[in-house]
Amino acid sequence: MSVEKGPVEKGTELPPLELRVTRADLVRYAGASGDLNPIHWSDRVATGVGLPGVIAHGMLTMALAGRFVTDWAGDPTAVRSFGVRFTRPVVVPDDDEGALVELSGKVTDVADGVAKVAVTARFDGKTVLGRAVAEVVLPA
C-alpha cells in the first residue's frame, strides 16, 4: 500500500471504479474459472430459465470487486477475507459496450492493523452485491 494515499481510517473512501463487462469477458472468465454454465454465454439457455438474457458469473462480479480492493491495497495478498451476497444479476448484452458495473468502497473499521472495507457494486443503478466486506491487512 502506498503511503501517498494517506492514513487509512474509518470513513476512508476508495477511489471509485467503473468497469465494462462484455460477452468476451464472460467467455474469458468461463475458461479461466472452469464455470461453463450456459446461462453465462447462451441467450437461449438464459431466457429459457427465466433470466432477461445472459448474465455475468456472480463469481466474476465478486472477483472484480475483489480486484477493486486489491488495486487500492496495492497488494493482492493483503486481502485476508472477502464475503458477498449475490442480490441481483448483471445482465450482459451481446454488443461492444457490455454492462457497466460501478464500484465504490469505504473503510468501516480499522483494528489491529486490519481495515474492513465495505464495497458497493452497482449495475443499472442498483446494487448487485450485498454485505460485500473485505478485510485488508494494512502495512506495518
Binding site: 474469458r28 472468465y29 475458461g31 479461466a32 474459472s33 480486484r67 486489491t70 496495492g74 493482492p76
Partner: peptide, 25 residues
Amino acid sequence: KIREFALAIGEGASVCTDVDAARAA
C-alpha cells in the same frame, strides 16, 4: 492458471503474473 485467472478479472498486480516480482515480494 493463476496468470489466466488474473487476466480474466483484470488483476494487474505483478506478483500475480511475474515470478521474479512474486519472489522479490
